[in-house]
Design a protein around this nucleic acid. Structure first.
Lengths: 189, 189
DNA sequence: TACAGTGATGACTGTTACTGACATCAGAAC
DNA sequence: GTTCTGATGTCAGTAACAGTCATCACTGTA
C-alpha cells in the first residue's frame, strides 16, 4: 500500500471549503483542515503559501482560458474583439457544472474581507496576464492596458451575476451583455 | 504638559513609511514602529486594524474627491461625463505636492505582494463608492457598475503613470488621456 | 475645590499563521 | 540490495493580532 494517499492538494482544498462553509473562515484553523484529512499543519503550508490560498487553487488554468481566447482571435483584430474572444473562451471554461461549486465558494469569500482581498489580487493577476498577451500580439501600451483591464472588469461583473441565485444564463451570454454595456457607456456623452 | 503627544496616527504612519523604506515591510515589526515613536505595539493595533493599513490611511478623503466630482456633474449628464468629472476632481486632489510622497509610498508597496493586495482592495472600495453614487444619481445598474469600474480602472492606470519617474503631467491630464483611450477601445471593432 | 467620569495608553496573556531545520521512510532507480 | 528521492512528521521559534485590566492626565460638574 502506498505510503501517502494521492491528491493531497485536492483533498485539502475540498476539506477547507467544507469547513469554511460550515463554521467560517476565521473559525477554522489550518491545523484543523490538515487534521481532517489525516495530515499535519506543516504539510498544509507546504501545499499552500497561506491559509487563504487554499480557496484559490487552479487559478492558472482559468487564466489560460482567457489567453486561449486571445490567441483564437484573428491577427489584426481590434482589441475590443480580442477581449470579446477571451471572454467567450472563459465562458466556456465556467460551464454549468461549475456553477454550484462557484456559488458555495463565493459565499465563503463574501463573508470574509481578507478573502475578498485575495480575490481582487487574482483579478489583477488576470489583468496582468491579459496585458502581456495584448502586448505580445502587437497592441501598444495605453490600449493594451485598457483592453486587459476591461477584460478583467467585464469578467468580474459577469461572474458576480452568473452566480446570483436564480440566474441561469451562461457566463458567456452575461459577459457579452456587459461588454455591450461598456460600448454604450463609451459611446454616450 | 499633555499626557500624550497629539497626532498619534500621523506619527505612526510617518514612522512606518520611513522604516519600511529603509529596511522593508516584512523586516519591520509593528512593535518596532511603535517603539520608534515612544508607543507600544498594542497602541499601534488600536489605531490600525493591521500592519498593512498604516500605509493606507486617509483613503476616505481621497474617495470623497471622486464623489465630489460626481456631484459636480450636471444632472442628466451621461455616465461617461460623470466619470470624467470625478476623475478631474481626483486629479485636483493629487496635486504636485503629493507626488513625491506618493512615489515613496508606491515604492514600498511595489516591493511587497501583501501590500499590493491591500491596494487592490482600496481600489475596489473606490469602485463600490462610485457605484453607490451612480445609483443614487439615477443611473441604472448595469451601466452604474460599468461606470464605477471604469472610473476606478482609469484612475489606477493614470496614477501608475503619474508617479513614474520623469512624468510631469498632472494626474488630471493623464487620466483624461486614458479615458479617451477607453473611448477608442470601445469604438473600434 | 473636590471628585467622579473619560479616553488613550501600558502591561500582560494567549492564539494562530507561518517558517526553518532535521528526521523518517516507502518506493523508484540503479 | 543499496542508494536516492520526495512527501511527510516533529519540534522550536517569530510575529501578527486580540482580550482584559490597570493607569492616569484631563474634563465636566457640584
Amino acid at each position: 500500500m502506498a505510503r501517502w494517499q494521492p491528491g493531497t492538494r485536492e483533498r485539502l482544498a475540498r476539506a477547507a471549503l467544507e469547513l469554511f462553509s460550515a463554521q467560517g473562515f476565521e473559525q477554522t484553523t489550518a491545523a484543523e483542515i490538515a487534521r481532517s484529512v489525516g495530515l499535519t499543519e506543516r504539510t498544509f503550508f507546504r501545499h499552500f503559501a497561506d491559509k487563504r490560498e487554499v480557496l484559490f487553487d487552479g487559478q492558472q488554468s482559468f487564466t489560460q482560458a482567457f489567453l486561449d481566447g486571445v490567441e483564437a482571435a484573428p491577427p489584426g483584430a481590434p482589441p475590443f474583439e480580442v477581449v470579446a474572444s477571451a471572454l467567450r473562451s472563459a465562458g466556456r471554461f465556467f460551464d454549468d457544472e461549475r456553477r454550484a461549486f462557484a456559488r458555495a465558494r463565493q459565499a465563503v469569500i463574501e463573508a470574509n474581507p481578507a478573502l475578498q482581498e485575495r480575490e481582487r489580487h487574482k483579478r489583477a493577476a488576470l489583468a496582468a496576464a491579459m496585458h502581456a498577451a495584448m502586448l505580445a500580439r502587437g497592441t501598444a501600451d495605453p490600449a493594451a492596458s485598457v483592453a486587459a483591464e476591461t477584460a478583467a472588469t467585464v469578467f468580474s461583473l459577469a461572474f458576480q451575476q452568473w452566480i446570483r441565485p436564480g440566474e441561469d444564463r451562461t457566463l458567456a451570454q452575461i459577459a457579452a451583455g456587459v461588454l455591450a454595456e461598456v460600448r454604450r457607456f463609451a459611446a454616450a456623452g
